[in-house]
Structures are given as structure tokens and as C-alpha cells.
Design a binder for these strands. Structure first.
Length: 502
RNA sequence: GGGUCGCUAGCUCAGCGGUAGAGCACUCGGCUUUUAACCGAUUGGUCCUGAGUUCGAAUCUCAGGCGACCCA
């Protein structure tokens, strides 16, 4: 293994001995390879064009046969073949009779090189740059992954994402789509006069969600701090301050397990619109996501893991009660006590966790056990129990419920929205109830943020609020089975005692 | 936390109780139409770690480590 590296280092030294650098300062390509492929699509087999071009990129494969060599050079736009003919290369460099053996022996797959030349389509039909001159731009000291199998080791794909990107077009496409999704989402919001305002990541009190935060510390103030678990409470303060449409798209941190659907740092967008309720936010959600899907995928009907998903609005709307009743036969509106609901659940083989200490929490349990994973096409699930939703406004007509929806696609929660609770007295009672649960041992229960309550007392207009999980949306739009496929550098346990990272 | 599977050359893998293997990559030789180039030769090993069973363990057993997937 170190032999490979040593061999390449020797080639770098050989270049230096020839008065060339293995690490160039710059190069000026005239075209990207895809431009050439497009512009010369009409060039016939065996024909040449004398138009001079300069291209740069990474050597992917090399095929040397005596006095002729074919290299594949790839830049960001794609590959092009280099046609390296000993006779014509030497004719262009009468002072350097070794030039052909230099390009064939001092280069390796993985090197960045720049070449000048003209165009030729080979007898086999491959558009090629016929090389007149070449320059090492950056000598690679490490081998590329197996050229047939690529990076089969899933862990290595995440740990050494640069290798994955080099050899996996699908991975490159995934991160292109991710960038396109984020920019198109921002553009859509900006065009509708939503302001993106950044709120603190470092907070003395993490709030806005049921989750455990990461703890850190500020030295100068000797202050314990946590990383944010949501942007909700600060964005709402901005609405109190008079910004009627605000959002923030950014990183959230939750000190939780790692799975194919969870990474401890992930990206969300939270959107708040004054004078709107959760019905307005449903319309916004389906239009926003469908628009972004159209931009990123070119259609609102997409394929995810072999299943066709239709994101064309409008999407199905159903209450949690309806969905649970349809799936289990149980009417949770009829239960008057937890014991009654628990007995009914057990009768249909539903698990009844002790922590679910109310009819409402049991309803959510039944939903999660029997409904959630079956919601493949986009579905708005409406009207959650009040005890699970301390920041949502109580339902205008259904006692015990709040005006909240979650959006499910391919069985995954993808968005969450409320008619926001703006009544400061009710809000204090709700957060105090949460704090009581926290004292009783629930580490994810929320706390009372006095300044937030104070802001509500100053006065917040009626507001609709929405949060969308960007990573899960990217998974959907890139047909990725794991959240780690859509995060460039997902959290992994650090490697110990290995030279693989050398 | 529970279950299943995996860990052997730089990479992808075979070998499953009897001398450590193949393809690719690397190095050398040959080759002016290849594109997984081809032909020939050479090089390359802590078979994840430890203990046990056995005349003999990459292979069987136990414990541990790391990882993947599923479930909670």
C-alpha cells in the first residue's frame, strides 16, 4: 500500500527533475468536456477538426498501447477521451523526444492534468482531444477506488465522500439536487416576500421541540449553552416584532440516535406567516414542495425506491382520528378514559406503552403503529391531541385537539405545522405542564421560556407556522434510502488505530 | 437496547478442518483505434482481536471490536 504511494511520489520527483511542477498554480481551460461533446456531436468517425482547445480534469482511466494511448479525462461536466499519438506528439516537440513516454509513465489514474490539442473522433466513434501538449496540474498519491465496483464499502463512501463523489455519478447528482432544492426553496420564499432572518444556534435554553440538546460552554462568560433544537421560538419573536413573513433554513442539532432517517445535525426550514392558519400552511406546503420538485426533478411525479409518488397538488387531507379508525376500527372520540382506550387497543393487538398516559397519547401510539408507514402518497394528517403539541393553538371546534398537521410521504414525517398558539396565558399553562413532565423524568419535555412568554404578552398576530425537514425531502427527490446519502459528511464514530485515513 | 448478516492482498471477492487464492490495481516487457483495452511476467497477507477445541483453525466454539440492515 505504501509502495503505491512511494511509486507516485517518485513520479512527482521525476516531473520536478524535468523542470515541471507536480502541483501547478493554474490552468486556463477553453471548454468543459460536455461543451465539446455537444459542439462537435456532428464530427464524423475518423474525422479531425483543427480548432485548438484546452481541457483540464482528473484522469479516470489510461490505456497505453505501444505508440498510441487513450486516456479518459473527466471534469465536473463529464468525461472526454484523450487521443495521444506518439508520432504527432513528438513532431510538435522536436526538442523533447521523450514526451510520449513522459505522459504515459508519469501519469496515473487520479491525477489532475491539463492538455492542449485539437479534436478528433476516433474510428470507434469516441470524440477525443488529440493531445499536442500536456501539463500535470496535481499529482495524486492515492489510488482511485476499484473502477468496476466503485466504492462498495458503504462506510467508506461516507467517511471518504471525496472518493464517492469521484466515482459515483449518482452521488454527485444527489448533492447537485440538494443545492438546487435549497436555492429554489429560498427563491420561492423570497419572491413571496418572506424574509430569511438568522436566529441563534447557541442558546442558554433550547426550546421549540421535544428533543434533547447538545450541551456546550462559553468560556468568557462562563456560561453553559446548548445548540438549538429548533428555530421556532426565535422566529416567533420576530413575528412579534412585526415581520409578517419570516423563515430560516438552517442546521438543527438534536442529541439523539443515528439511523437511516436520523442524523444528529440536520437541516430544516421553518416558515411563519402572519394572519394565516394551518389550512393556509397546507396550501403553502403543497405548492412549495411541488414547485421545488418540478424544478429539481422536472416533474411532480417521481419514483422513490420503486414506488411512484405523485406530488401534484392537491394532496390528501385526513384527520388522525379518521386514519386510526380506518386502520384499526377504533373510534378514539368515544373513549372517556385512558383505561378504556388501552383495553380497546390491546383487543386489536396494539402495544400500550406506559409512558402514553392519556387517551390522546394513545391515539398517537395507534397512529404510529398502524397508520404512519402506510402513508406513501403525500398526506396531511390533521388535528393532534393537545398534550403532544404545546406550541399549537387549540382547535377552533374540537375540544382536546390542536390545529396541527404533519405531512407524511413514503411513511415518513416530512413537515409539521400549526395554527400557532398566540395566547400567552394558555401558552404558559402548556409549557408549565411540559416542565412538570420533565421533572417527572421525560428528558425531551419542553421548559418554560420566560422571555418567549413575555414576547407573546407583548402581542403576536395570528400566525401559521411550518417546518419542513430538508434532508428527508432531498432523500425523496434523489431516490436515496438513507439520510446519510444526502448529507455530504454524516456523523460517524471516529476511526481509531487505522491508517485508512492517512 | 434486540435480531440478522459481514470483516481474507491497495480494491472487489472466492476459499468453510489439511501448503493463502482469483480478477482488477501496482511494477516490468510487448503492442498505433482503445474505451472494464489486450497478451506475458513479477510483486503484494496480523485471513478484525483474544481465548478455546484439534495432530492441525482463515475455516469449528466462546468472548470482544468495528460496520451494514431490520426492529424498538
Amino acid at each position: 500500500m505504501s509502495d503505491l504511494r512511494e511509486t507516485r511520489l517518485e513520479k512527482a520527483r521525476a516531473l520536478e527533475a524535468l523542470g515541471q511542477t507536480p502541483y501547478a498554480l493554474s490552468f486556463a481551460p477553453s471548454h468543459r468536456t460536455a461543451q465539446l461533446q455537444q459542439a462537435h456531436a456532428d464530427l464524423a468517425k475518423g474525422e479531425e477538426r483543427s480548432e485548438p482547445v484546452a481541457v483540464a480534469g482528473r484522469l479516470m482511466t489510461r490505456r497505453v498501447m505501444g505508440k498510441l494511448a487513450f486516456f479518459t479525462l473527466a471534469d465536473e461536466s463529464g468525461p472526454i477521451q484523450l487521443y495521444i499519438d506518439k508520432a504527432s506528439l513528438e513532431a510538435a516537440h522536436p526538442q523533447n523526444p521523450e514526451i510520449f513516454s513522459q505522459i504515459t509513465t508519469l501519469t496515473d489514474a487520479g491525477d489532475w492534468i491539463g492538455v492542449h490539442g485539437t479534436l478528433k473522433r476516433t474510428d470507434r466513434g469516441e470524440l477525443s482531444v488529440k493531445v499536442r501538449d500536456w501539463q500535470m496540474l496535481s499529482k495524486s498519491l492515492q489510488p482511485l477506488p476499484d473502477k468496476w465496483h466503485g466504492l462498495a464499502d458503504v462506510e467508506k463512501r461516507y467517511r471518504q465522500r471525496y472518493l464517492d463523489l469521484i466515482v459515483s455519478p449518482h452521488t454527485r447528482e444527489t448533492f447537485r439536487r440538494r443545492a438546487l432544492l435549497v436555492s429554489s426553496m429560498r427563491r420561492w420564499l423570497d419572491e413571496r416576500e418572506f424574509l430569511e432572518i438568522e436566529t441563534p444556534v447557541l442558546q442558554s435554553q433550547a426550546g421549540g421541540a421535544d428533543a434533547r440538546p447538545f450541551a456546550t460552554h462559553h468560556n468568557a462568560l462562563d456560561l453553559p449553552l446548548t445548540l438549538r433544537i429548533a428555530t421556532e421560538l426565535h422566529l416567533k419573536r420576530l413575528v412579534v416584532g412585526g415581520f409578517e413573513r419570516v423563515y430560516e433554513l438552517g442546521r438543527i442539532f438534536r442529541n439523539e440516535g443515528v439511523s437511516t432517517r436520523h442524523n444528529p445535525e440536520f437541516t430544516s426550514v421553518e416558515i411563519y406567516q402572519a394572519y394565516a392558519d394551518y389550512h393556509d400552511m397546507m396550501a403553502l406546503t403543497e405548492t412549495l414542495i411541488a414547485t421545488c420538485c418540478q424544478t429539481v426533478c422536472g416533474s411532480t411525479v417521481i419514483e422513490y425506491q420503486g414506488t411512484s409518488i405523485d406530488l401534484t397538488p392537491p394532496w390528501t387531507r385526513a384527520t388522525m382520528h379518521e386514519l386510526v379508525q380506518r386502520a384499526t376500527g377504533l373510534d378514539f372520540n368515544a373513549f372517556t378514559s385512558r383505561a378504556e382506550a388501552a383495553a380497546a387497543m390491546q383487543a386489536v393487538d396494539l402495544v400500550v406503552p406506559e409512558a402514553a398516559d392519556s387517551v390522546g397519547r394513545l391515539l398517537v401510539e395507534a397512529f404510529e403503529q398502524r397508520v404512519e408507514s402506510s402513508l406513501i402518497q403525500p398526506t396531511f394528517v390533521l388535528d393532534y391531541p393537545v398534550e403532544n403539541s404545546p406550541l399549537a393553538r387549540t382547535h377552533r371546534s374540537k375540544p382536546g385537539l390542536v390545529e396541527r398537521f404533519e405531512l407524511f410521504i413514503v411513511g415518513r414525517e416530512t413537515a409539521n405545522a400549526f395554527s400557532e398558539l398566540i395566547d400567552p396565558v394558555d401558552q404558559r399553562h402548556r409549557l408549565e405542564a411540559q416542565q412538570e413532565r420533565r421533572r417527572a423524568g421525560d428528558p425531551e419535555a419542553q421548559t418554560v421560556d420566560e422571555d418567549f412568554i413575555h414576547a407573546l404578552e407583548v402581542g403576536m398576530p395570528p400566525t401559521g407556522g411550518l417546518g419542513i425537514g430538508i434532508d428527508r425531502l432531498v432523500m425523496l427527490l434523489t431516490d436515496s434510502p438513507s439520510i446519510r446519502d444526502v448529507i455530504a459528511f454524516p456523523l460517524l464514530r471516529p476511526e481509531v488505530g487505522s491508517d485508512a485515513m492517512r
